[in-house]
Design a protein around this nucleic acid. Structure first.
Lengths: 226, 226
DNA sequence: CCTACCGATCGGTAGG
DNA sequence: CCTACCGATCGGTAGG
């Protein structure tokens, strides 16, 4: 039974929002126009910043006229929020897939994943999400927080927390085995910082591959097992 | 003898810039108005971002009318550049002072600083510069790169490079002694990432002190001396 | 440093 | 999704 809401729906379904009604992602087959807007917005927000990108820039990059993005999104801010949510949902899916795949590989070798191997999978996937192909969404989320309203902010933060929660037991296990030293919470924050900062300097044509970067990170953070 | 400049000063000192002549930092005793503008601009740029801060916001915060900041700075961009340069110059001074002081302390104990102790001094000072009192300037530099023109960018980058250069021999020594593992360049980039990211989450009322944070960082990055 | 102002741009909307 | 448009805001300037 759904929770009782103080105001129930109006009798004949009067649209409540301002202006024209807007489609949701799954309404009609041309949701690809919406996807296209998300893609170009993510790219522009990343390269120029949210405030420095006009909705006209976005429309032009998607081959539309200046007013048309507002047919798909209520506001520029809603578009930003959608970019962040889309990015986090993809990241969550990829993280789950990577962990599941690594688990299966281990099983086929009749082994269990060590905490160190788990961390390697998480770090490698994080780099993919952050600086790999189609990686504009997550940097936008990391660097454009300020432009969200409090409620949008907490919606995105919930997804981000889910993403980071996966790391906690892994880091705890490494802490317990002595492979990770120091305060556990501070270590986690510092590690995420080291990883997230790569979005600032890593270029696709960087001499170091993402595998090499993963190696460097694990070597930096982890001690030999005592 | 000063270097010969292709165009020497005009005979009777005609101002070359547009509009009213602007004072430099040392011209007259009310350079404190300029300093005040830098201070409030740094604070607003940090909390709202460069693009989301209007020159009217800055003027109001400094107790001026909307047009007055342009008496002190040629443009909003020039003000941003000045914030970053001022911040880097202070950081460089504080870094040099901290290292010198630590060297003197060691000398008084008839010892030399170990590489590990040097790193501790650098990290601790970096946290001070980044999230300590009057720490708005450096986060602005770290997060508002995009709004600079190429030439302004390289001017700031030169200062940033000078700051980071001090760390290189220290990290190299730790690498040589086996206290720091993995590719040296990548380790340095990851370490700066971990430190710089604290500007995103550290609050002055944070439970961890900057000393505790320094401990956590050194424990995370460094191995025991083999 | 203030007053008064300009031209440009921006997010967003009505109506089709 | 386009056309045509509005009100607000912004960086910056002339003149004192």
């Amino acid at each position: 039974m759904p929770a009782a809401t103080p105001t129930s729906d109006p009798p004949e379904s009067v649209p409540r929002s301002r202006g024209r009604p807007r489609k949701t992602a799954h309404e009609r087959d041309d949701g690809n126009r919406r996807q296209e807007l998300l893609r170009v917005a993510a790219r522009l927000f990343r390269s120029q910043g949210f405030d420095a990108t006009s909705t006209r820039d976005i429309a032009a990059a998607a081959g539309m006229r200046s007013g048309s993005p507002f047919y798909h999104f209520e506001s520029k801010e809603a578009l930003l929020t959608a970019v962040m949510q889309e990015g986090m949902e993809r990241a969550l899916r990829r993280q789950a897939d990577a962990m599941a795949q690594a688990g299966l590989d281990a099983q086929r070798r009749h082994q269990t994943l060590t905490a160190r191997e788990c961390l390697r999978v998480l770090v490698r996937n994080h780099f993919d999400v952050l600086v790999g192909p189609e990686s504009d969404f997550i940097p936008v989320m990391l660097y454009e927080w300020r432009s969200l309203s409090p409620s949008e902010r907490s919606a995105v933060k919930a997804l981000k927390d889910r993403y980071e929660t996966v790391w906690v037991p892994v880091l705890d296990a490494l802490h317990a085995s002595g492979e990770l030293s120091g305060d556990a919470r501070l270590a986690r924050l510092l590690i995420f910082g080291a990883l997230n900062w790569t979005a600032q300097w890593y270029q696709p044509n960087e001499r170091a591959s993402l595998d090499a970067l993963t190696d460097a990170a694990l070597q930096l953070f982890l001690k030999d097992k005592p």
